[in-house]
Design a protein around this nucleic acid. Structure first.
Length: 156
DNA sequence: GCCAACGTTGGC
DNA sequence: GCCAACGTTGGC
């Protein structure tokens, strides 16, 4: 059992849970975190074996699509040093990398997407970070109780 | 260190 | 495409 739980947002038009299932070893580096708070969470909180809710954002039906585990803990994101990358950061210093990423492995798809609408309608999930006004963090902590409730709703 | 301007996120 | 909310930047 994972020790801690997180929610990672991704736009399915860019990278969906099915894309992750189709990836080699169902694993991908979680690219492009360029927010300091999210970076600090990756650095200080996210450990190998932790559970991840894969959340689809900016799409027709936002919601949790599947479950993942952390396959590799934080390491420097190579894209920050690549001038051709969208994630290039001219201020990043190879001797002191500014941005990190973790590897995420797909575990299983939920039988049905746990939609944002459903999360909002579920009292046990009323305190999820996701629902906090104006919260745009792409990486958020999830409590064990919330994790359990999402799994139940999703038919896992 | 303030704060206005600007860019991004993400639901709708 | 709109817009609210928030983060970042840069002039002073």
């Amino acid at each position: 059992m994972p020790q801690r739980f997180w929610l990672f947002k991704s736009e399915p038009s860019v990278f969906s849970f099915d894309d992750l299932l189709a990836a080699p070893k169902k694993t991908t580096p979680w690219e492009g975190v360029r927010n300091y708070q999210a970076r600090n969470t990756l650095r200080d909180g996210v450990k190998k074996g932790d559970g991840v809710l894969f959340y689809h954002s900016s799409c027709a039906v936002p919601g949790v699509a599947g479950l993942c585990t952390i396959a590799r803990e934080a390491y420097p994101d190579p894209h920050q040093f690549d001038p051709k990358s969208d994630y290039y950061d001219p201020k990043a210093d190879p001797a002191d990398p500014r941005w990190l990423l973790v590897d995420v492995k797909a575990d299983r798809k939920l039988r049905e997407v746990v939609t944002l609408e459903r999360i909002k309608a579920t009292p046990a999930l009323a305190k999820m970070d996701l629902l906090r006004r104006g919260n745009r963090l792409s990486i958020q902590p999830v409590t064990p109780a919330e994790w359990k409730a999402i799994l139940t709703l999703g038919g896992a």
